[in-house]
Design a protein around this nucleic acid. Sequence first.
DNA 1: ACCTGAACACCGTTCAAGT
DNA 2: ACCTGAACACCGTTCAAGT
Lengths: 224, 224
Amino acid sequence: MSTEIRKTERRAEALSKDRIVEAAIAILDAQGEAALTFRALSTRLATGSGAIYWHVADKQTLLATATDAIIYQALSAATADSGDPRAAIQTLMLAVFDAIEARPWVGAQMSREPWQSAALQVLEGVGGRLDALGVPDGAQFNAATALLNFILGVAGQNSAAARLDRRIGDRTDFLAAVAAQWTRRDPARYPFLHRIAGQLPGHDDREQFLAGIDFILTGIEAAR
Amino acid sequence: MSTEIRKTERRAEALSKDRIVEAAIAILDAQGEAALTFRALSTRLATGSGAIYWHVADKQTLLATATDAIIYQALSAATADSGDPRAAIQTLMLAVFDAIEARPWVGAQMSREPWQSAALQVLEGVGGRLDALGVPDGAQFNAATALLNFILGVAGQNSAAARLDRRIGDRTDFLAAVAAQWTRRDPARYPFLHRIAGQLPGHDDREQFLAGIDFILTGIEAAR
DNA sequence: ACCTGAACACCGTTCAAGT
DNA sequence: ACCTGAACACCGTTCAAGT
């Protein structure tokens, strides 16, 4: 057993679930969600499209697995617990935010399939820190899902923006186009949109995200 | 002009954007999002699929228009301003919640395309009441989008649940299945999920939603 | 101006056939 | 056991041809 010779010349191209997920992530990152087809995947892997089905159940599962892997990485890298539970939750949420900002397809998938593993990782991460925050047992379910729902909303918003970015040009052009759409609406019926449209093109997504987290955390703490 | 005879025998089947949207909503309500195809739509309208394209740009626009109409109805019916701005925001948010619970496709569409008109209606409705709540001008953008992002997250979650409901059976069975999935995970890595799994099958979505809104509103008020 | 419906260019998934 | 790739059953969208 211990003296067994390890075969190192294992075929580099051997198909496996891991290699398929890896290739899927590469396509998603490089060309976006619409580019991920089983044809593109099988071309990249130099195999037949049917071969992929031997390793993964279907496209939905493949996307869920890829998303789960990214979120796992993001959360593993972020867990530098500082003792302060509020800061720990912020760090964790920011890690997810950065992951979905870097890969819009992750946000799209999470907001579309919030019952899958990626979202559960976030729910566990947040929920597990509520004890330390002093949130009573009976309130933790609502508190954790409030934070989760908020980030899922942001995730959908972000991925939609990225999708439109890709079409319109860069981010500034996109936000300017959205702001223009707001001000094109009837000012009598949409006064608020007119009032804040100017803030849209220059605003900082990350700061806005943190502000939202702060509202929720303050509300959670107030309910203790 | 005033004595012109109005032709009342106008063809009942005349195609129009409104009739197409109406038919789309009927299909979406009765059979869900997956059932809305241009073939199904043209069959129901007794026309060719190309005729639809003469009135609506594409499927995405059709879905956005239908969603916008539903949210418009929901918000129109709900605006019974009571004087108390916090209660007014809760009423408004609940109206959206009820609309997406009644029609899961509305929630799916809103969370997928949050830059479109339906979401803007919600943003305006919420934002327009922040003045009365005493939120300073500079904080209103973050406050309004926090509430919007939360409801968009809930919308995605709800529509995903409805999609799975349809597959698994009724809601209780679905939630029990989700809870079982949670407890099947490693208890050492997912202690929180294990702890709250029991609350999942019996929990009240609406109450949970209101709790989330309360957290955010409390946080917003604290920042005044 | 408005409608028809075949045709085009795709999809995800299946499956008989290979090794 | 694992892989191949043609075939199936769909899509959204376009467009020549009709009225």
